[in-house]
């Protein structure tokens, strides 16, 4: 090159740039074509790379053995719940029940039914608290998460910080303070005391927020141009694209609400939930060894069902989910 770059006139400089660009573009095109040809030659051009039979089997086996370790203790709990008393204290302990019985479960319900309030009342409490808390939390937290991830307004950064800090804060005194707030509002020993603390945790909100940040802004802009309001964008555009996260917070909330025992905020027998009653029964000690296992199994079933339903829902929606750029 005869002249240095800075000596060139603006028009010459522009021409030079165009030339360079054209050259680069041609090179890129050539490379793409080459790769494309290679892709076409290799079989199954629209399949994922590195996907093979042997790989899949290897992964399956690895997960299978790790899964055994995870499941084994739960299996033991199930086996213990169907063992009759004499087998629980057998030497050496057996990994299966020789004479399976439903005695422990019947015991559990018999004791539960003999308490002050009918067991059906406890079941109602648990179902009511779980459903109300889960539905309200998911509705409120998703709406708030949308605003906290996709809108800019004064206080935006501050609120986002508060949500994370609240997650990290964990103190023995917190429960006392919560009790004081509840007492001031006259909510001790009511359903509100069971439901509201669950609604007000920020974990679900944070998960939704994190998931929503991956939704492209272009999608929201497009909806805005089409004249949709924020509410409409949130539930019509963003939420359908966050199905996995939505199902996950449903699982979390259901589980939290189902295991809620009200702490010290509820003491009326008529307001107690199933976990509390079951704990009371199991607290009787060694004689109820089988009943403890039975109670753990019974308590595990509803969250398990919700989990499977939610996961299946995710699979179905993701199968024909389309747009996401």
């Amino acid at each position: 090159m005869a002249k240095k770059k800075k000596d060139l006139k603006p028009s010459e400089l522009a021409a030079l740039r165009e030339q360079e660009n054209a050259a680069a573009l041609a090179a890129l095109k050539k490379r793409r074509e080459k790769e494309h040809k290679k892709m076409l030659k290799s079989k199954g051009s629209n399949k994922r790379v590195g996907k093979s039979w042997t790989n899949d089997i290897g992964i399956f086996l690895l997960l299978f053995f790790m899964g055994l370790f995870m499941v084994f203790p739960i299996y033991l709990a199930v086996v213990n719940s169907i063992k009759p008393v004499q087998e629980v204290f057998l030497m050496p302990p057996k990994l299966y029940a020789m004479d399976p019985t439903t005695e422990n479960f019947r015991d559990l319900f018999k004791i539960a039914n003999n308490s002050w309030v009918p067991f059906s009342r406890n079941i109602f409490n648990s179902v009511f608290v779980t459903v109300v808390a889960t539905v309200l939390h998911v509705l409120f937290a998703s709406t708030a998460a949308f605003v906290l991830s996709k809108c800019r307004f004064p206080g935006f950064d501050f609120l986002n910080q508060v949500v994370v800090i609240a997650l990290l804060f964990n103190s023995t005194v917190l429960y006392i303070m919560q009790y004081m707030v509840m007492a001031t509002l006259g909510m001790i020993n009511t359903y509100s005391a069971l439901i509201l603390p669950i609604i007000s945790t920020s974990m679900g909100l944070y998960l939704m927020r994190q998931s929503m940040t991956t939704i492209p802004d272009a999608m929201i802009e497009a909806a805005k141009v089409d004249g949709a309001g924020l509410m409409r964008i949130c539930w019509g555009v963003v939420m359908p694209n966050c199905k996995p996260a939505l199902m996950t917070i449903i699982i979390f909330e259901f589980q939290t609400a189902w295991n809620a025992n009200g702490g010290g905020l509820v003491y009326d027998e008529a307001l107690k939930t199933i976990p509390v009653v079951v704990q009371q029964i199991a607290a009787a000690g060694i004689a109820r060894q089988g009943a403890i296992a039975a109670s753990a199994v019974v308590l595990m079933i509803p969250p398990l069902l919700v989990f499977v339903l939610a996961q299946r829902n995710v699979m179905e929606t993701m199968a024909h989910a389309g747009m996401k750029d």
Binding site: T143, V147, L159, A166, L205
Partner: peptide, 24 residues
């Protein structure tokens, strides 16, 4: 509109989580 959409969650969040945290 942002504040309206935040309100339902934030009211509970502030009363039952933020206030106890600040008090502790």
């Amino acid at each position: 509109m942002c504040y309206v959409m935040l309100a339902p969650f934030m009211i509970f969040f502030i009363i039952f989580t933020v206030v106890p945290v600040i008090m502790s």
